[in-house]
Amino acid sequence: MAAATRTAAHAAMRGALPLGFTSTAVLLLGAVYCLFPVSWVLVAATKSKAELFSISAFAPGTGLLSNLADLAAYRDGVFWLWLLNTLLYAGGGALLSTVVSTVSGYTLAKYRFPGRNVIFNLLLGGILVPAVVLAIPQYLLFSTVGLADTYWSVLLPQILHPYGIYLARVYAGAAIPDTLLEAGRIDGAGHGTLLRKVALPLMLPGMVTIFLFQFVAIWNNFLLPYIMLGDDQKFPLTVGLYTLLAAGANQPSLYNLIITGALVSIIPLIALFLTMQRYWRTDLSSGAVKH
């Protein structure tokens, strides 16, 4: 990073706009701020119990493997179960959510029918409903039908995604030409065929974006599983990490375990995030992904 700053400074001296140098510097400060806790946890996870409190914060230690072994052994490997559960909730939930959002968004963008705006506003209005108004009654309703503390109780409420429907509608409007649908109709294609053969292939990049947003939202959700689940065998990582913290906050000997757990739990999403860069860049406000 020092080299990078030097190049920027060099460019500024050569007579490029001083604004470019200031902008670069401010943005790099922002980057350092955002990378700071992640890099700290990365280094801290390599330290042994003694090293965590003795050596300097950003000096790597020698305990990474034993920390990972401790984490794997914690309560017969419950941590890996949490990781699998999270994958199931986030993967399954995001997949279902993407299908529902895409079909709904396409219908709202490309069909004219009575009640279209009412339905859209109702569904979109869901964005404004705070999770709190939903989570507790959802728990009570799931209890009534005997489904509280099951995988379903975490999976089902997270399928409907107002923001996903909004994105899909905007995206369908921009990516599917009416003329193409019209041509398909003249060729005798039914509504199901138009959806499968014309709409879905064109909406694929938008679907990836919707999937990613919902995947991250479910992966990061804490309130809903925290309320729904009692059995720690069904916990996702967020709730598992919290119980780990609640159990170990007063015992500095458990800090290594918690820190290593935090590191392992953020690695999959960061990897997904970095490999899917292209789809995070899609235009959220206009649906145009063509540039």
Binding site: L19, G20, L28, L35, T238, L241, Y242, F273, L274
Partner: peptide
Amino acid sequence: HVRLARFSRISIFLPFAVPGVAATLM
């Protein structure tokens, strides 16, 4: 004339991928 814009943009967006519980813990 912004240098390293891609690096900065990705780094600043990175915390979005970190769950609130993990962020609070760190």
